[in-house]
């Protein structure tokens, strides 16, 4: 469903991605690991269409379409979902208003009628339970005054509501204690399905104990330098990134 070829991307004239290749098939969970500054978050941003980044070379095809030609909202409607590393606080924007509009944007895209109030309530309740989100949060402003864990759970909650084809988790584990990590991972695992792909970006192996990946990639200096099964993550945990750096240089 996702095919990235020779992707080069820069921000403010600084080259970050330098020829990245990645193919994700439906049902697969790919973990992207790498040290700080290797380009992990840049990859997430470029996939979701953040404007600050400039793609200087390469291509990204998603479900057969040229992703780079699409606006961020078009990508979302096509089925891409980015769980933010730093979810944005939106004071004055109520959760339910925001989510209703997002759901209806998707329904309109699919040629469906807007969601009814009753269906919406039911759906909110059902999906909130998935990530143990307090129903009261729905009445509050988006992410405003949420704890770090609540913000991350809110991302997975939105993912569950919007049912994307491809979910990108950008360091969803950062800043989570072990209980929150477990809740978030449980939520993600329940959303795994044969037709949904995941790209899980993380600095640490810990998350992958809970969200077990099919393939682990190591991102170094803007390129994927090694791919393997989940054991690769364990090796990285044990030996650190320098091990691969040395290996790659040799």
């Amino acid at each position: 469903m996702l095919e990235i070829k020779d992707l080069h991307a820069s921000i403010e004239d600084m080259q970050i991605l330098k020829g990245l290749n990645l193919t994700v098939n439906p049902g697969e969970v790919h973990a992207i690991m790498g040290p700080n500054g290797s380009g992990k978050s840049t990859l997430a941003s470029v996939l979701a269409g953040r404007e600050d980044y400039e793609v200087t070379n390469g291509s990204i095809s998603f479900m057969g379409e040229d992703l780079l030609e699409m606006e961020p909202d078009e990508r979302a409607l096509a089925g891409i979902f980015l769980a933010f590393q730093y979810p944005v606080e939106l004071p004055g924007v109520s959760m339910s208003n925001f989510l209703k509009q997002a759901i209806n944007a998707k329904r309109e895209h699919l040629g469906q009628d807007p969601i009814t109030a009753a269906e919406f309530m039911k759906l909110m309740k059902e999906k909130a339970e998935l990530v143990h989100l307090n129903p009261d949060l729905k009445r509050r402003s988006v992410n405003e005054g949420f704890s770090g864990g609540e913000k991350k759970r809110n991302e997975i909650f939105q993912m569950a509501l919007l049912e994307p084809q491809l979910a990108i988790l950008d360091e969803t584990d950062s800043g989570l204690d072990i209980d929150a990590l477990r809740i978030v991972s449980d939520g993600v695992n329940q959303l795994r399905s044969a037709d949904r792909g995941f790209v899980v970006i993380t600095h640490y192996q810990r998350l992958l104990d809970y969200i077990v990946p099919d393939i682990v990639h190591v991102l170094l200096d803007g390129r994927i330098v090694r791919s393997g099964d989940k054991d690769l993550a364990l090796q990285l945990e044990e030996k650190g990134y320098d091990w691969i750096k040395d290996d790659v240089l040799v």
Binding site: P72, R75, F84, A102, L162
Partner: peptide
């Protein structure tokens, strides 16, 4: 960033 967050959920500009 707030605009991008909303658009990444499928809302138009």
């Amino acid at each position: 960033e707030a605009l991008f967050y909303l658009r990444s959920r499928g809302l138009s500009q």
